[in-house]
Design a protein around this nucleic acid. Structure first.
Lengths: 213, 213
DNA sequence: TGGCCAACTGTACCGGCGGTACAGTACGTT
DNA sequence: AACGTACTGTACCGCCGGTACAGTTGGCCA
């Protein structure tokens, strides 16, 4: 059907990706409103008309950007915790390994974590329509469900030593990650984010195993 | 010297405060770049000339806004932890009371927490000059020093049961607060932020007293 | 080889906004 | 009556986001 030109299609998809790349870093550095279409097309090397060929308006760019970001995060989490589970079949130990891998990954980013789009969008919510805001919300709720399922599995084998709401403990990861990114960026110290993730790790360990180390 | 009109001066200071009020809520809702001078003067009921009488340019508004915000936060923390200390002279118990007061205060905000300017500015850092970025950094470092001093006092009486970096535990409050605000805003659930603060409280309790309740 | 289609370019235009410049004014204090 | 504060009014500039739409390039297939 339609079929048409494969090489052209690849080229188009590539340009679109490069627009999203340029947009992502710009948005994380100065926000969506201050990210001009002109700078994006200059970075990619196309004209303004070219931009509007790929996105009907700036809002469509915002949506596509967030969708791609959330998908990539999901893949990263899937991958990382699957690897951790391969290393240890015990749910608690696997989770602790996963958190350590995450902290190491953050620590290895040479320029520090570039930022979280969810947090960026959150502080500019009125710029976006309902679609995008709901997308953001669903993204966070998916993180909650993911961590909650890990924690449920852990709690089944290790009854919590402390009285905590597991949804809150699940959210705590996201909160510490987003908060840690903000602190790391503003004090300009790459080590803050991995430090916070490792603190989450010791919290989870003490909640379920009650022991240090 | 100069002395001059007292009533006029009060009126001018009042208009300036109202400009800052309008700017603060607007910035937290859609970011600094998307906050137009025109909407601020419309909200306050003055003309554009009036705005530029109070601030030489938009950058000066950004700086004044952040300065006021940081001062108010400082006062709030001073006040709240002083009250907590009045209720219990033990540093650990006082700190735990302070955290509970904080959580209750956040819980009582009818529309949820309006947002943290530090976080908002962090995700728009390239819009601001060095002055403002350094101000933001100093603000966060002041929070760290404050909580670190509480924790040092606690650690002197209650040796930590878990091996943790006290600077990281101090930062953890800020990270959970900022992260909690983001989660609460994006999932649109006021209870998330107080929940995270209470989790920080149980973490601190288990680190220093090692017991649940 | 001719036509199709994806992926653009070129040109023109609009309105909003940040910012500048500066003259004028209302009003309380001295 | 004079002075300073806190503005208003008017006019203007340049940039940028956004729209509209017609034209062009270059692989691919029949």
């Amino acid at each position: 059907m339609g079929a048409a030109n494969e090489a052209e299609r690849r080229k188009g998809a590539d340009t679109r990706e490069r627009l999203l790349d340029a947009a992502e870093s710009a948005v994380l550095e100065k926000g969506f409103a201050a990210t001009s279409i002109e700078e994006l097309i200059a970075a990619v090397g196309i004209t303004k008309s070219g931009f509007f060929y790929h996105f009907p308006d700036k809002g469509a760019l915002a949506k596509a950007l967030l969708e791609r970001y959330l998908e990539r995060e999901e893949e990263l989490f899937d991958d990382l915790f699957a690897r951790a589970r391969d290393l240890d079949d015990d749910p608690l130990h696997a989770f602790l390994i996963g958190l350590k891998l995450m902290a190491e990954m953050m620590s290895d980013l040479p320029a520090g974590h570039p930022g979280c789009l969810v947090a960026s969008y959150c502080y500019q919510e009125n710029l976006f329509n309902r679609d995008v805001r709901d997308l953001n919300r669903e993204g966070v709720l998916r993180w909650r469900r993911r961590f909650r399922s890990y924690l449920d599995e852990i709690a089944a084998r290790y009854p919590p030593k402390v009285d905590v709401d597991l949804d809150a403990v699940a959210d705590m990861f996201s909160a510490l990650a987003d908060g840690g990114i903000i602190l790391a960026k503003t004090v300009r110290d790459r080590d803050v984010l991995p430090g916070q993730l490792m603190l989450y790790r010791t919290f989870v360990r003490t909640v379920f195993s009650g022991t240090d180390r």
